[in-house]
Simulated scan of single mutants.
Amino acid sequence: MTLKLEQINAASVAQFVALLDGTYEHSPWIAERAALLRPFASLVQLKQSLAQVVRESGRELQLGLIRAHPELAGKAMVSKTLTAESTNEQSKAGLTDCTPAEFAKIQQLNADYNARFGFPFILAVRGPRGLGLPKAEIIASFERRLHNHPDFELAECLRNIHRIAEIRLNDKFGHMPALGNQVWDWAERLSTNSDPGYAERGELTVTYLTDAHRACAQRLAHWMKSDCGFDDVEIDAVGNVVGIYHGADRSAKRLLTGSHYDTVRNGGKYDGRLGILVPMACVRELHAQGRRLPFGVEVVGFAEEEGQRYKAVFLGSGALTGHFDMAWLDQKDA
Protein backbone atom coordinates (compact mmCIF):
# COMPACT_ATOMS: atom_id res chain seq x y z
CA MET A 1 0.00 0.00 0.00
CA THR A 2 1.39 3.38 -1.02
CA LEU A 3 1.09 5.95 1.75
CA LYS A 4 -0.34 9.43 1.25
CA LEU A 5 0.32 12.53 3.33
CA GLU A 6 -3.41 13.00 3.87
CA GLN A 7 -3.56 9.51 5.33
CA ILE A 8 -0.82 10.01 7.91
CA ASN A 9 -2.02 13.51 8.81
CA ALA A 10 -5.51 12.18 9.58
CA ALA A 11 -4.34 9.06 11.46
CA SER A 12 -4.41 8.65 15.23
CA VAL A 13 -1.03 8.56 16.94
CA ALA A 14 -1.19 4.76 17.15
CA GLN A 15 -2.14 4.50 13.47
CA PHE A 16 0.59 6.97 12.53
CA VAL A 17 3.20 4.85 14.34
CA ALA A 18 1.89 1.70 12.66
CA LEU A 19 1.96 3.27 9.20
CA LEU A 20 5.59 4.34 9.67
CA ASP A 21 6.63 1.06 11.27
CA GLY A 22 10.11 0.03 10.19
CA THR A 23 11.23 3.50 9.12
CA TYR A 24 13.62 3.70 12.07
CA GLU A 25 14.77 0.24 13.12
CA HIS A 26 12.93 -1.03 16.24
CA SER A 27 12.37 2.57 17.40
CA PRO A 28 8.64 3.44 17.33
CA TRP A 29 9.23 6.28 19.80
CA ILE A 30 10.52 8.43 16.95
CA ALA A 31 7.27 8.24 14.99
CA GLU A 32 5.28 8.63 18.20
CA ARG A 33 6.97 11.96 18.96
CA ALA A 34 6.87 13.10 15.34
CA ALA A 35 3.10 12.56 15.26
CA LEU A 36 2.78 15.58 17.53
CA LEU A 37 4.41 17.77 14.87
CA ARG A 38 1.65 17.24 12.30
CA PRO A 39 0.28 18.25 9.87
CA PHE A 40 3.01 17.68 7.30
CA ALA A 41 2.77 19.67 4.09
CA SER A 42 5.26 17.49 2.22
CA LEU A 43 7.25 14.28 2.42
CA VAL A 44 10.35 16.42 2.95
CA GLN A 45 8.79 18.00 6.03
CA LEU A 46 7.95 14.56 7.40
CA LYS A 47 11.55 13.40 6.91
CA GLN A 48 12.91 16.54 8.55
CA SER A 49 10.53 16.21 11.49
CA LEU A 50 11.56 12.61 12.16
CA ALA A 51 15.22 13.65 12.01
CA GLN A 52 14.47 16.55 14.36
CA VAL A 53 13.02 14.14 16.92
CA VAL A 54 16.24 12.11 16.85
CA ARG A 55 18.43 15.20 16.97
CA GLU A 56 16.63 16.54 20.05
CA SER A 57 16.34 13.18 21.85
CA GLY A 58 19.70 13.21 23.62
CA ARG A 59 22.74 10.97 23.51
CA GLU A 60 21.31 7.96 25.35
CA LEU A 61 18.31 7.57 23.07
CA GLN A 62 20.54 8.14 20.06
CA LEU A 63 22.86 5.36 21.22
CA GLY A 64 19.83 3.14 21.74
CA LEU A 65 18.70 3.85 18.19
CA ILE A 66 22.11 2.92 16.79
CA ARG A 67 22.25 -0.26 18.87
CA ALA A 68 18.79 -1.24 17.62
CA HIS A 69 20.32 -1.80 14.19
CA PRO A 70 21.73 -5.19 13.18
CA GLU A 71 25.32 -5.76 12.16
CA LEU A 72 25.99 -6.03 8.45
CA ALA A 73 26.09 -9.71 7.46
CA GLY A 74 25.85 -10.46 11.18
CA LYS A 75 24.12 -12.91 13.48
CA ALA A 76 20.62 -11.61 12.71
CA MET A 77 21.16 -12.19 9.00
CA VAL A 78 22.48 -15.70 9.59
CA SER A 79 19.56 -16.57 11.90
CA LYS A 80 17.09 -14.90 9.49
CA THR A 81 15.74 -12.57 12.18
CA LEU A 82 16.35 -9.32 10.30
CA THR A 83 13.40 -7.01 9.74
CA ALA A 84 11.95 -7.08 6.23
CA GLU A 85 13.51 -3.68 5.56
CA SER A 86 17.00 -4.73 6.68
CA THR A 87 16.74 -7.98 4.73
CA ASN A 88 15.88 -6.05 1.59
CA GLU A 89 18.75 -3.60 2.08
CA GLN A 90 21.43 -6.17 2.85
CA SER A 91 20.21 -8.30 -0.05
CA LYS A 92 20.45 -5.40 -2.53
CA ALA A 93 24.05 -4.87 -1.42
CA GLY A 94 24.84 -8.56 -1.92
CA LEU A 95 25.54 -9.13 1.78
CA THR A 96 23.24 -12.15 1.85
CA ASP A 97 25.46 -13.74 -0.78
CA CYS A 98 28.98 -13.21 0.58
CA THR A 99 31.86 -15.51 -0.25
CA PRO A 100 33.38 -17.24 2.80
CA ALA A 101 36.31 -14.80 2.67
CA GLU A 102 34.02 -11.75 2.48
CA PHE A 103 31.86 -13.06 5.30
CA ALA A 104 34.90 -13.69 7.53
CA LYS A 105 36.27 -10.23 6.75
CA ILE A 106 33.00 -8.47 7.61
CA GLN A 107 32.60 -10.52 10.79
CA GLN A 108 36.05 -9.43 11.95
CA LEU A 109 35.30 -5.81 11.08
CA ASN A 110 32.04 -6.01 13.04
CA ALA A 111 33.92 -7.29 16.08
CA ASP A 112 36.67 -4.67 15.80
CA TYR A 113 34.18 -1.84 15.32
CA ASN A 114 32.01 -2.87 18.28
CA ALA A 115 35.07 -3.22 20.48
CA ARG A 116 36.25 0.28 19.58
CA PHE A 117 32.97 2.20 19.65
CA GLY A 118 30.48 0.15 21.65
CA PHE A 119 27.81 0.19 18.95
CA PRO A 120 27.36 -1.45 15.54
CA PHE A 121 28.66 -0.04 12.27
CA ILE A 122 25.83 1.66 10.38
CA LEU A 123 25.97 2.28 6.65
CA ALA A 124 23.15 3.01 4.21
CA VAL A 125 24.12 0.05 2.05
CA ARG A 126 21.51 0.75 -0.62
CA GLY A 127 23.67 3.67 -1.70
CA PRO A 128 22.78 6.98 -3.35
CA ARG A 129 20.46 5.44 -5.94
CA GLY A 130 18.94 2.87 -3.58
CA LEU A 131 20.23 0.01 -5.71
CA GLY A 132 22.93 -1.32 -3.37
CA LEU A 133 26.59 -0.53 -2.78
CA PRO A 134 29.28 -2.94 -4.00
CA LYS A 135 30.61 -5.16 -1.22
CA ALA A 136 34.14 -3.90 -1.82
CA GLU A 137 32.97 -0.34 -1.17
CA ILE A 138 31.17 -1.40 2.01
CA ILE A 139 34.30 -3.14 3.32
CA ALA A 140 36.47 -0.13 2.40
CA SER A 141 34.10 2.20 4.30
CA PHE A 142 34.19 -0.17 7.27
CA GLU A 143 38.00 -0.17 7.34
CA ARG A 144 38.27 3.60 6.93
CA ARG A 145 35.74 4.47 9.61
CA LEU A 146 37.42 2.23 12.19
CA HIS A 147 39.99 5.02 12.59
CA ASN A 148 37.48 7.82 13.25
CA HIS A 149 37.01 9.61 16.57
CA PRO A 150 34.10 8.10 18.57
CA ASP A 151 32.10 11.34 18.54
CA PHE A 152 32.53 11.69 14.79
CA GLU A 153 31.54 8.07 14.28
CA LEU A 154 28.40 8.42 16.39
CA ALA A 155 27.36 11.36 14.19
CA GLU A 156 28.21 9.37 11.06
CA CYS A 157 26.04 6.46 12.22
CA LEU A 158 23.12 8.81 12.85
CA ARG A 159 23.60 10.42 9.43
CA ASN A 160 23.43 7.00 7.80
CA ILE A 161 20.38 6.05 9.86
CA HIS A 162 18.57 9.12 8.54
CA ARG A 163 19.59 8.16 5.01
CA ILE A 164 18.24 4.64 5.58
CA ALA A 165 15.00 6.13 6.90
CA GLU A 166 14.77 8.44 3.89
CA ILE A 167 15.04 5.53 1.45
CA ARG A 168 12.48 3.52 3.41
CA LEU A 169 10.06 6.46 3.40
CA ASN A 170 10.55 6.88 -0.34
CA ASP A 171 9.55 3.23 -0.70
CA LYS A 172 6.50 3.63 1.53
CA PHE A 173 5.30 6.72 -0.36
CA GLY A 174 6.25 5.44 -3.80
CA HIS A 175 8.50 8.45 -4.25
CA MET A 176 11.31 8.47 -6.79
CA PRO A 177 13.77 11.32 -6.07
CA ALA A 178 14.38 12.14 -9.72
CA LEU A 179 16.32 15.35 -9.10
CA GLY A 180 18.55 13.75 -6.51
CA ASN A 181 19.21 10.81 -8.80
CA GLN A 182 20.12 13.20 -11.62
CA VAL A 183 22.65 14.96 -9.40
CA TRP A 184 24.19 11.65 -8.30
CA ASP A 185 24.37 10.48 -11.91
CA TRP A 186 26.18 13.65 -12.97
CA ALA A 187 28.61 13.24 -10.07
CA GLU A 188 29.29 9.62 -10.99
CA ARG A 189 29.92 10.46 -14.64
CA LEU A 190 32.16 13.40 -13.75
CA SER A 191 34.20 11.13 -11.47
CA THR A 192 35.22 8.96 -14.42
CA ASN A 193 37.74 11.68 -15.32
CA SER A 194 40.89 11.36 -13.22
CA ASP A 195 44.57 12.23 -13.64
CA PRO A 196 47.04 9.56 -14.83
CA GLY A 197 48.56 7.54 -12.01
CA TYR A 198 45.36 7.83 -10.01
CA ALA A 199 42.77 6.68 -12.54
CA GLU A 200 44.53 3.31 -12.80
CA ARG A 201 44.08 2.78 -9.05
CA GLY A 202 40.43 3.81 -9.10
CA GLU A 203 41.23 7.06 -7.28
CA LEU A 204 39.74 10.45 -8.13
CA THR A 205 42.29 13.20 -8.68
CA VAL A 206 41.63 16.19 -10.92
CA THR A 207 44.27 18.89 -10.74
CA TYR A 208 44.27 22.19 -12.55
CA LEU A 209 44.58 22.18 -16.37
CA THR A 210 45.25 18.46 -16.78
CA ASP A 211 43.41 16.50 -19.46
CA ALA A 212 40.98 15.21 -16.83
CA HIS A 213 40.38 18.76 -15.64
CA ARG A 214 39.62 19.99 -19.16
CA ALA A 215 37.32 17.01 -19.73
CA CYS A 216 35.36 17.90 -16.58
CA ALA A 217 34.97 21.49 -17.78
CA GLN A 218 33.70 20.34 -21.16
CA ARG A 219 31.19 17.96 -19.55
CA LEU A 220 29.85 20.62 -17.19
CA ALA A 221 29.49 23.10 -20.04
CA HIS A 222 27.70 20.52 -22.18
CA TRP A 223 25.26 19.59 -19.42
CA MET A 224 24.53 23.24 -18.64
CA LYS A 225 23.69 23.98 -22.26
CA SER A 226 22.13 20.76 -23.52
CA ASP A 227 20.57 19.20 -20.41
CA CYS A 228 19.72 22.18 -18.21
CA GLY A 229 18.75 24.96 -20.62
CA PHE A 230 21.10 27.71 -19.48
CA ASP A 231 20.90 30.67 -21.85
CA ASP A 232 24.62 31.41 -21.96
CA VAL A 233 27.46 29.02 -21.19
CA GLU A 234 31.18 29.62 -21.49
CA ILE A 235 34.51 28.36 -20.23
CA ASP A 236 36.50 31.47 -19.36
CA ALA A 237 40.23 32.10 -19.67
CA VAL A 238 41.14 30.38 -16.38
CA GLY A 239 38.82 27.42 -16.91
CA ASN A 240 35.78 28.51 -14.90
CA VAL A 241 32.57 27.07 -16.36
CA VAL A 242 29.95 29.82 -16.25
CA GLY A 243 26.25 29.23 -16.93
CA ILE A 244 23.67 32.02 -16.96
CA TYR A 245 19.90 31.54 -16.81
CA HIS A 246 18.27 34.91 -17.31
CA GLY A 247 15.40 36.19 -15.23
CA ALA A 248 12.08 37.41 -16.62
CA ASP A 249 13.88 40.70 -17.21
CA ARG A 250 17.19 39.89 -18.88
CA SER A 251 18.72 43.02 -17.39
CA ALA A 252 17.82 42.02 -13.82
CA LYS A 253 20.54 41.27 -11.29
CA ARG A 254 21.68 37.67 -10.99
CA LEU A 255 22.05 35.33 -8.04
CA LEU A 256 25.55 33.86 -8.29
CA THR A 257 26.34 30.47 -6.81
CA GLY A 258 28.68 27.59 -7.48
CA SER A 259 31.71 25.68 -6.28
CA HIS A 260 34.91 24.07 -7.57
CA TYR A 261 35.36 20.99 -9.74
CA ASP A 262 39.05 20.31 -9.14
CA THR A 263 39.90 17.85 -6.36
CA VAL A 264 42.55 17.00 -3.82
CA ARG A 265 44.56 13.87 -4.53
CA ASN A 266 42.40 10.77 -4.03
CA GLY A 267 39.45 13.02 -3.30
CA GLY A 268 35.72 12.49 -3.00
CA LYS A 269 33.17 12.52 -5.81
CA TYR A 270 30.96 15.14 -4.20
CA ASP A 271 33.32 17.57 -2.47
CA GLY A 272 32.85 20.90 -4.20
CA ARG A 273 31.01 19.43 -7.15
CA LEU A 274 27.63 19.18 -5.44
CA GLY A 275 27.75 22.97 -5.17
CA ILE A 276 27.74 23.09 -8.97
CA LEU A 277 25.42 20.19 -9.75
CA VAL A 278 22.59 21.06 -7.34
CA PRO A 279 21.98 24.57 -8.75
CA MET A 280 22.32 23.09 -12.24
CA ALA A 281 19.44 20.75 -11.38
CA CYS A 282 17.41 23.72 -10.10
CA VAL A 283 17.90 25.58 -13.38
CA ARG A 284 17.02 22.40 -15.26
CA GLU A 285 13.67 22.31 -13.47
CA LEU A 286 13.00 26.00 -14.08
CA HIS A 287 13.74 25.55 -17.76
CA ALA A 288 11.58 22.40 -18.02
CA GLN A 289 8.66 24.30 -16.48
CA GLY A 290 9.23 27.36 -18.66
CA ARG A 291 9.69 29.52 -15.57
CA ARG A 292 11.70 32.70 -15.22
CA LEU A 293 12.46 34.25 -11.84
CA PRO A 294 12.50 37.98 -11.04
CA PHE A 295 16.30 37.64 -11.08
CA GLY A 296 18.78 35.65 -13.11
CA VAL A 297 20.78 32.67 -11.89
CA GLU A 298 24.50 32.37 -12.58
CA VAL A 299 26.20 29.08 -11.73
CA VAL A 300 29.99 28.93 -11.74
CA GLY A 301 32.07 25.78 -11.73
CA PHE A 302 35.31 27.20 -10.38
CA ALA A 303 38.36 25.76 -12.08
CA GLU A 304 40.70 25.69 -9.10
CA GLU A 305 40.48 25.84 -5.33
CA GLU A 306 42.58 23.05 -3.88
CA GLY A 307 46.11 24.24 -4.78
CA GLN A 308 47.22 20.72 -5.64
CA ARG A 309 49.18 21.40 -8.81
CA TYR A 310 50.50 24.91 -8.21
CA LYS A 311 51.39 26.71 -5.00
CA ALA A 312 48.41 29.01 -5.33
CA VAL A 313 44.78 28.53 -4.40
CA PHE A 314 41.45 30.00 -5.49
CA LEU A 315 42.72 30.72 -8.99
CA GLY A 316 39.19 30.42 -10.39
CA SER A 317 37.39 32.64 -7.90
CA GLY A 318 40.34 35.03 -7.84
CA ALA A 319 39.91 35.65 -11.55
CA LEU A 320 36.16 36.10 -11.18
CA THR A 321 36.47 38.67 -8.39
CA GLY A 322 39.35 40.60 -9.96
CA HIS A 323 41.97 39.33 -7.52
CA PHE A 324 44.01 37.19 -9.89
CA ASP A 325 47.72 37.72 -9.24
CA MET A 326 49.54 37.75 -12.58
CA ALA A 327 52.63 36.39 -10.82
CA TRP A 328 50.72 33.12 -10.51
CA LEU A 329 51.33 32.57 -14.22
CA ASP A 330 55.00 31.88 -13.41
CA GLN A 331 54.12 29.02 -11.05
CA LYS A 332 55.64 25.59 -11.63
CA ASP A 333 54.03 22.27 -10.76
CA ALA A 334 53.99 21.76 -6.99
Rank of each mutant, 00 (worst) to 15 (best):
R284Q: 15
V283H: 02
G243P: 12
R265D: 05
T257Q: 04
E56G: 03
D271G: 12
I122S: 08
T2Y: 07
V242D: 04
R273C: 10
E188Q: 13
L109P: 04
I139P: 02
D330W: 06
I138E: 08
I161R: 06
I66D: 09
A288I: 00
Q182H: 14
N114W: 05
R292S: 07
L329Q: 08
G318A: 09
P150W: 13
A248L: 09
V299S: 11
S42G: 11
Q7D: 08
T83Y: 06
E25D: 13
Q48G: 01
L277T: 02
R250Q: 10
A187C: 09
I244N: 12
H323Y: 01
I106R: 03
Q218L: 14
A281R: 04
H175K: 13
A140K: 14
A319C: 01
A51Y: 08
R126K: 14
G174N: 12
S194W: 03
T81V: 09
P120H: 12
T87I: 03
R168H: 08
G174C: 12
D97T: 10
G130R: 02
L82H: 07
T87M: 13
I66W: 04
K225Q: 15
D97M: 05
G272I: 04
T23G: 05
H149K: 15
R254C: 11
S251A: 14
K105W: 05
